[in-house]
Amino acid sequence: MRRRSLCGIFLAAALSLVWGCAGMDYASIATIAVKTTAKAAEASRPISDSEEYYIGRAVAARVLGTNRLVQDPQLIAYVNEVGETVARKSPRPNTYKGYHFAVLDTDVPNAFACPGGIIFVTKGLVLMCGNEDELAAVLAHEVGHVANKDGINSISKARWTQVLTTLGTETAKQYAGAGGQIISLFEGSIDDVFKTIVVNGYSRSAEEAADAEAVATLRKAGYDPGALSALLTKMMAKQGAGSSGIFKTHPPTSERLAKLKSIAPATETPSKLEAVRTKRFKSVKI
């Protein structure tokens, strides 16, 4: 902040004379003890938006440690345009550093939402989507997981309690002192999230909540809300193809499809504008 730094220069010059702004700083000595107590009392705060962001970055870095990114600028721009269009209509349109969408270079259909808003979709899943509305449905579902904080909520309660305890005991020391302990807790948190979003998948209730949110978001954005059931039907037909990828992370069960069909059945005939969107989807080289 400009004003503060200018102020700081004069403060330094005037520090030997206890007067004016410098006086205010000396007065704050008295409040430090109070602040320390307040800090210890933040015992059960939830994970903040910026902490969610740093966890999400590390989870994404782990995904990208073993996956390549599609580098085609046209596809990147297209997926981000569709993603941003739905994210704006989601219950959580803004995150600490916003939503970012990327395509993983693999034919295995899959999608993951890292906490904070980095969303991956594989080339295989983009290809399985026959049109823009189905891609929007996938991305709206993943945005739903970010909005519901499903990734971040997979961090074990015990681990987060330990983080807060560690911070509580270290308040009076320099940050470096708490370092080792916090870093291993950070590692553990990344493991918790990674296991849920990449390896085991979310709970059935989390899936159904993200589906319901995706339908509402698609409706608000002007996309066909039936696109998600259409895609899920397609996935169920291909389920024999494997039990990995999307079939593991977001299982297309008949209960899930039944619930989805009751709130937004697949539409038989696409609207004129949907045809326009399908045309632009097909014009993007995947």
Partner: peptide
């Protein structure tokens, strides 16, 4: 951010 939890410094060490 320092001492507040998962911060840029924690990411750097990680």
């Amino acid at each position: 951010l320092a001492g507040k939890g998962f911060t840029p410094e924690v990411e750097a060490s990680y």
